[in-house]
Design a protein around this nucleic acid. Structure first.
Lengths: 346, 346
DNA sequence: ATTAGCACTCCTCTTTACAGAGTGCTAATA
DNA sequence: TATTAGCACTCTGTAAAGAGGAGTGCTAAT
């Protein structure tokens, strides 16, 4: 059995209805609300077929039917392939964003906030991942007797700075020497690899500052490799309360608990569309690997600086998400972000 | 009518019971569970008096009674005045905290996390408020052609740094000159007042760098004065789901929505115990000024560096909070924080 | 002053009944 | 042969009714 034109139309009607009403729909209601030119009985037969094909589910015998994950996937693929994604909506966003560009973190946070307000779903964003950035230059600045500020500038133009505590005091001039040596040695290396590089090569050349360097390395590794070093922003968590499928307290708890766990969320975002070609990634319901969000869908897009992906932004919500509205919005806000960041970094 | 010994005992029994069970209790049950040496009938009479005095509430005619805010206040004042606050529990906390002290922000965040785990309530913390800190020295470091890193070290030893974008490029030497001049002029001033000070005095002396300075001032003000500049941490938001009074979805939503609004929470924390003498502040139920949390209690304590209050940490939960357990924990974690921070800053 | 006894109140839980929405099957129809 | 009308059947959600339980306030006895 194949899914023909009419079956597709009926399926689309059911999906459309369920996205809006969150309730099963029966043959009679379909024939009244959607003008398909056939009687409820015919629709019933087709629905029976669609169920057999795995596109529909029946909560119980005498309820109507709802779309399955397979149905959403079909629907979403259709949306994305047609891909007349309307980026006009993005223009409104633009001005607000540009005004807010004090710090990059603020920019990302504001973008997430805007995305949540526009979509009415919970938004998530991760800020530039330093581990994967290449170093452009390194500078160490004295703060007081025992502490220094380590500044690492990446090739994409981002800046990471960390206060470090040393074991002995050291002069400004010596710090300059170390800074220059470090820059020379580390230029072009990945921040995530600082530890390895330093361990092997540098210690030898710079025996004079051995203790200082060891202390530096230890601290850099600690601060760069910790999960804490990935900034995560979420916004509009309480949007989830607005959906009838979350009028159950346990479901809300599971959802919010999941989002409160930073590690989970970061991993989920990282894995989303890990091997997708374009910058958009969509995971639907059961496709999620975490149990807690198997009835959610996740739509994310990457943003880039100088052609390099540095972060992600997207939304999470019930499986019956308004894909046709959300996909263009996520797409366009990520493009806006990329554009603004590129402008900022020249 | 005065509240005598026996009334107080009955009241305490009711408070104790309600804190644990979250349910009204009647005279018969009290006489069975708490050995007061009088019959239910007597207890009934006393309860009637206590209600008249405003210490008890009756959800409906044939329910038992629950404590009023006035009752909690009496109870908590008793606890705090007896103040044999047991800081032994703090010792366990200590080691975990010391290990985590990479960045100060991380320390505060971890403290909040530990506090939530220990108390089983939602914890909140605000990190050092820069506005109120005095400047020790200022350093400007070049990042690339058009950007510099502004580092401000405060007298208490904290460091604030901000990336700034300039309108024209400037040499390293010139930056050093500016840094030194700024340090000289700004030493001892409040960060929050940088704008005022610079506007009046400095521009005249440093005409050469007028444009650079103006750009700097604009950016510093923006980054210091924005509400964003107060770091807020919360942990264990989902603890609220564990309390039976929050098995109602609307109440949970109101609570979480409130906490999601950073401005609200910061203001609430700032106002808590605004004019209290010691470092501990407790707001009970209706005493809260925000409608959304009038059935919550807030317990916070300040932490200090060099005798100066730089932040707050505490918990929020249902009015029937386990005060006798939470108060010492909040107290001791704030003391730990102060101690560790002081050690860190010498 | 305290307490036993009792009528009364109010809430909550369970049971029962019923309306509503939907299905699948069969037989009639185009 | 595909479509449709008709009908018996199923399942859910909700409202009404009733039983049970916990607690109170009052009165009268101790």
């Amino acid at each position: 059995m194949k899914i023909d034109e009419r079956k597709l139309k009926i399926l689309q009607a059911i999906i459309h209805n369920y996205i809006i009403n969150a309730e099963p729909i029966g043959s009679r209601t379909i024939s009244k609300k959607y003008d398909l030119g056939v009687s409820p009985a015919t629709i019933r037969n087709e629905m029976s077929d669609l169920e057999e094909l795995g596109y529909l589910l029946q909560p119980h015998t005498s309820a109507g039917r709802i779309p399955s994950n397979k149905a959403y996937r079909l629907y979403v693929n259709g949306l994305v392939n047609n891909s007349h994604i309307d980026t006009k909506k993005g223009n409104k966003v633009d001005k607000k964003l540009i005004e807010s560009i004090g710090q990059i973190e603020e920019l990302i946070e504001n973008s997430a906030s805007i995305l949540s307000k526009l979509t009415n779903y919970t938004s998530l964003a991760i800020a530039p991942q330093l581990k994967l950035s290449k170093i452009k230059h390194v500078q160490i600045v004295p703060v007081d007797e025992m502490r220094v500020l380590l500044v690492i500038v990446t090739e994409s133009g981002m800046v990471k700075n960390t206060i470090l505590r040393l074991d002995r005091s050291i002069s400004k001039e010596q710090l300059n020497i170390i800074s220059n040596l470090l820059t020379e040695k580390l230029k072009g290396k990945l921040i995530g690899h600082i530890g390895d590089v330093l361990q092997v090569k540098i210690i030898k050349d710079m025996y004079e500052f051995k203790d200082i360097l060891e202390s530096l390395i230890k601290n850099i590794n600690k601060s760069v490799n910790s999960k804490e070093s990935v900034e995560l922003y979420s916004n509009g968590i309480t949007k989830i309360f607005d959906f009838p499928e979350y009028n159950n307290i346990d479901r809300v708890k599971a959802f919010i608990s999941f989002l409160e766990n930073k590690d989970n969320v970061i991993e989920m975002l990282m894995n989303n569309g890990f091997n997708s070609m374009n910058n958009l990634a969509i995971t639907i319901g059961e496709e999620n690997s975490y149990e807690e969000i198997k009835n959610c869908s996740l739509i994310t897009a990457t943003y880039k600086v100088n052609g390099k992906t540095i972060g992600k932004i997207g939304v999470i919500g019930p499986t019956r998400m308004e894909y046709s509205k959300v996909i263009p919005l996520v797409q366009s806000i990520s493009l806006d972000l990329s554009r603004i960041l590129n402008k900022y970094f020249e």
